[in-house]
Every structure is written in C-alpha cells, then in structure tokens.
Design a binder for these strands. Structure first.
Lengths: 179, 179
DNA sequence: CGGCGCATGTAACAAGTTACATGATTTG
DNA sequence: CAAATCATGTAACTTGTTACATGCGCCG
C-alpha cells in the first residue's frame, strides 16, 4: 500500500513523467522506498484510472512520447488520509541476519569477507547521506518546512550508523575467538 | 530467495511439522524473517518436491494429520551454498519514513501520536529481546557455537535502539518548534 | 453429538522482479 | 542512415497477504 503514496508524494513535489519519477526514486525518495520503472508505470496507470492523477494535456500521446502527470484533488486527499493512518512497524526482514543464523548451523567459511564488504557499502552510503545533508540542510537556514525532510534523512543516517557499529563489533569479535 | 533457507535452517535446528515451524517463526527465526503458515506450507511442498527435505514416515498421512519434515543432504548443501553466497544489502523500505516525507508535503496532524505509539512498540520489542538475551546468553557460559546466534540477537537489539533513539529525537524536536 | 482447537491445505489477489518489446529523438 | 539513448510499455514469474475450506480428536 505504500508505492502509490510514494508516487503521489513525488508528483506533488514536482509533476513528472514516468522515467523522471524513476530517476527521482533512484535518488531521494527511493532511499526509503525504491521502485523500478515497470512498477512505476503500472502504478501510474492505476492512479490515473482511479482519478487521483491525470496526464497533462500534450500534443501526441503516443508510445515513445513523454507523458507528464500531475496530482488531482482526489489524489491529495487520498495521500492525506494515508498519512493520518496508523500502521504498526514491520518485522525486521534482513537476509544478512538470516544468513548468519544459518551459518550458526552449517558453518560459515568466508562470512568475514562478506561482513567486511557490507561494512564498506554502508560506509559509502553514510558518506552519501552526509553529503546530501551538508548540501540540502546547512545549519544556517532552519526552515520549518524542511524539518520533516531533514528528520527522514537523519533516519537514514542513523540506520547506516547502526549497521556500521554492528558490523564493526561483529568483525572485532570474530577476529579474537572466545578466550 | 530467503524463505526456503530460513525453513531449512529451522528444520536443521529441529525437525518439525508445518504448524510447529509457524510457531517457531513467530518466536525466534521470525524476528528476522517472518512468514505465515500459508507461505510455509507452500514452501515445504516445493522443498519436498526438490528433494531437499522429506516427510518423516508416519502411520496415516491424511489431511488433519501431523506431518514432520527433516532436511536431506541435498538441502543442507543448498543451505551451505546460500550462506557462502554474497548479496548486497537491500535498500531501506520503511512506511514510517515515507509517511513522514509525505507529511512534509500535505501536512501532518496527529503524526506525533503515531511516533509516540511506535516508540512504545519499539521499547516493548527491545525489552523482549533483552529478556531473551538474559535467558539464552548468560555471561557465564560463552560457547563458541552460540556466538553467531548471539550476534544476530544483538543486531535486533541495536536496531530497536536505533529506532528508539531516532523517534525520541524526532519527538523532542517536534515539541519545541524552530526558534 | 456439538463445538473448539489443532493441523493441513486451496484460491485469489497484491506487490515486487526480470526479461523483453516498441516507438521517438538525437548524433556521429 | 545506423547506433545510442530516451521513453513507455507487456509478459511471465516469484513472493507475500487475505480469506476460506477440510479433516481429526478431544471435552463438556
């Protein structure tokens, strides 16, 4: 139930075509809800049919032609209703934790290398987030409308820090087996 | 690709029937990879057909009858191969972060209450994990085979701590609007 | 024997993934 | 014009979710 609302949010921030949305999902919004272009086109079709968005009038709406969408009042209302809704946090679902649990049963040759690899990836992602923070939320201007977006980004930063901390401790412990 | 391996791991730890697996997924393994009984039955069927597990011989394998499964050598090999495989960490996918991003666009009445509710839920989950840690991994016996399982649990604990920290900061900031 | 809990399933759907198809526009 | 790129889309499949169906055994 999240993808359509992610799309509505993105379209409210700026009307876009399918491919533009896809690219924006690869950057900002996609950091918290990723989607492929196939998913996005399918969902745009449904939203249009449901009367929540509409294609901006253009010359020739043909196959290889760009098609821009904007949010209709009904779409904005649907998004508001969704924001107000309450929903329990999902269970954790992480292949690496599961893999480690499996390793406890069948043995774990080479798990160390995988942990180190993940550590590197998370460090890189953290650096990227910090870069965005420096660029988009400098300490000078403290606009109220930015506050929520900054909090979301902070969530991503804290989450990467969690992984880095956990992986570091796991590797440290693995280096020196039980005394 | 994770569910079958979660099931193989659980079955190696202890041969079980479908419902028993479901219940164990509600407790230990499910903390990191949840599944409903329908998913589990479907997957047990596939694994059996693939020759990775087999039903223990019983008197009358009828519909309302319990059916226990054990892992065959092929299954153990498949699990080992999966553990050794490397896989990139998934993108974050969290409805609450997305909801907050949407709230930045359409406004956020009542978001505070939702954050407080989540804070409570995460505190409860943390308490549950700490209880399990105290019970299953007391500081006395420091068995090597437990090390990986303890690390997995630590992952869960750290993750809950991340949420608690982030939600607390978000609420504190929301209490005193920008000066 | 009637209802409840245990246990195993089926069916239909929704969401996400992977591979491929097609038309339009630019550019060497 | 051929190739690359932009842009939209189809099809088939896998995974996850929701609702319901069926049989067994126990207990009041």
């Amino acid at each position: 139930m999240s993808l359509p609302h992610a799309i509505l949010t993105a379209l409210l921030e700026k009307p876009s075509s399918g491919l533009e949305l896809t690219r924006r999902f690869d950057r900002s919004i996609g950091y918290f809800w990723s989607a492929t272009h196939q998913q996005i086109y399918r969902e745009l079709g449904k939203l249009e049919q449901a009367g929540q968005i509409r294609a901006l009038p253009s010359e020739q709406p043909a196959r290889g032609q760009k098609k821009e969408y904007e949010v209709l009042p009904a779409g904005r209302e649907a998004l508001s209703a969704w924001v107000a809704r309450s929903e329990d946090p999902k269970q954790i679902r992480d292949p690496l934790l599961l893999r480690m649990r499996a390793a406890a049963v069948v043995g774990a040759p080479g798990l160390d290398a995988e942990l180190r690899r993940h550590l590197g990836l998370h460090r890189r992602q953290l650096a990227e987030y910090l870069e965005i923070e420096k660029r988009d939320f400098p300490p000078e201007r403290n606009l109220d409308e930015d506050r929520l977006r900054h909090l979301v980004l902070r969530g991503g930063i804290d989450l990467e820090n969690f992984w880095i901390g956990w992986l570091t401790r796991a590797l440290a412990q693995d280096g020196q087996p039980s005394p």
